[in-house]
Amino acid sequence: MFDTETDVACAEVGAADVLAAQARLRPYLAATPLHYAERFGCWLKLENLQRTGSYKVRGAMNALLAARERGDTRPVIAASAGNHAQGLAWAGHRLCLPVITVMPRTAPQTKVAGVAHWGAAVRLHGDSYDEAKAFAVELAAQHDYRLLSAFDDPDVIAGQGTVGLELGELAPDVVLVPIGGGGLASGVALALKTQGVRIVGAQVEGVDAMARALRGDHSLRDAEATLADGVKVKEPGRLTRRILGGLLDDVVIVREAELRETLVRLALEEHVIAEGAGALALAAGRRVAGKRKCAVISGGNIDAVVLAQLLADVRPRAPRRPRRRF
């Protein structure tokens, strides 16, 4: 993570970095499968089946490996609503490197337990990602930890971009990506934009900091409550904002009701379990035309109680009465 705006302005990440990340990650992470959701008319990139249940492990592992190549062996600390922390914990476990994670007290217990399972130290602080982030910055300064952003870091962005490289064989004309801080969308755009692929971001109504920033509105607003806790970011990344300002084709703002419906339909019709942020790109895809479109299902770490409640709220449809033929 960068300490000043100057550091961000000087940072560079490009398609070559994404290719380098793919080479680093190959011994550790397998490519995730594609699934065609016929009822949605859309391909799904199933990052919910990735290690730790989310694409975030790609960026975390690439960042640790790249740092090791540079000789940086400091303990790593990160703020996360859950998936970045889990990915970093697993990467630290595999590489035998110390990891500290700061998570908001509101983080789903499923994700907190996942981080602890891989041996990372967990500090719960604040009621939002942004409060957890401020505390992580403070701890890093006190103890000389390496502060690793969940999205605003060149190595993290390059690692997330490997999702896009894996879509090469599909040859999509449009790829839909959920956006919180913008790391995944930035990496996928770097990987695919030169191939003429349209990159469309997805955000939730009231949790649309990146969309507003790209329109020139840099005011900070408290994010509204949402099922998509993984994209609940008050301030998007500076580096990611710069990348997406040049490469993103559009942003679709999804209503919370649309997101909930999509998540339930994914589970019942496609047998794909996604968390709120994981279903966001597909929800946006219902408004985007494309002959060969693909939505990134970014994660599947949904709290079991939340999923059970969503499914319990589904009202069964009454069977259709047969039409009389005479």
Rank of each mutant, 00 (worst) to 15 (best):
Ala304Ile: 08
Asp17Val: 13
Gly278Phe: 10
Ala289Tyr: 10
Ile253Thr: 00
Thr262Glu: 00
Pro75Leu: 15
Leu184Gly: 01
Arg325Gln: 05
Ala60His: 00
Val207Ala: 10
Val197His: 12
Gly196Cys: 04
Val8Lys: 15
Leu190Arg: 07
Thr226His: 01
Gln109Trp: 11
Asp173Val: 09
Leu227Val: 02
Glu205Thr: 10
Ala63Tyr: 02
Glu138Gln: 12
Arg317Ala: 13
Met103Ala: 02
Ala281Pro: 01
Ala116Tyr: 00
Gln109Phe: 12
Ala20Thr: 08
Tyr129Asp: 03
Ile253Asp: 08
Ala209Glu: 13
Gly59Ala: 09
Leu190Met: 09
Glu235Cys: 10
Glu12Ile: 15
Leu88Thr: 06
Pro104Gln: 00
Gly230Leu: 09
Ala78Glu: 12
Gln109Lys: 13
Leu139Asn: 01
Lys291Phe: 12
Gly159Trp: 04
Phe326Thr: 04
Asp173Cys: 09
Leu95Thr: 12
Gly164Cys: 08
Phe2Ile: 13
Leu244Met: 15
Asn301Phe: 04
His125Tyr: 01
Leu65Arg: 01
Ile297Asp: 07
Pro236Thr: 10
Gly237Glu: 10
Asp249Val: 11
Arg74Phe: 14
Val207Arg: 03
Arg323Phe: 12
Val18Gly: 11
Asp153Met: 10
Thr101Asp: 04
Leu192Val: 05
Leu165Ala: 02
His84Ile: 11
Ala91Pro: 07
Ala136Thr: 08
Ala85Asn: 03
Arg317Trp: 11
Arg242His: 15
Gly114His: 02
Asp155Ser: 04
Ser149Arg: 03
Ala89Pro: 09
Gln309Thr: 00
Asp313Lys: 15
Gly41Asp: 13
Val8Gln: 15
Arg324Cys: 11
Arg287Val: 07
Met1His: 15
Phe326His: 13
Gly278Met: 10
Gln109Ala: 13
Ala223Val: 11
Ala31Arg: 10
Asp249Asn: 06
Gly180Arg: 09
Leu184Trp: 10
Ala120Arg: 11
Pro75Thr: 15
Leu259Gly: 08
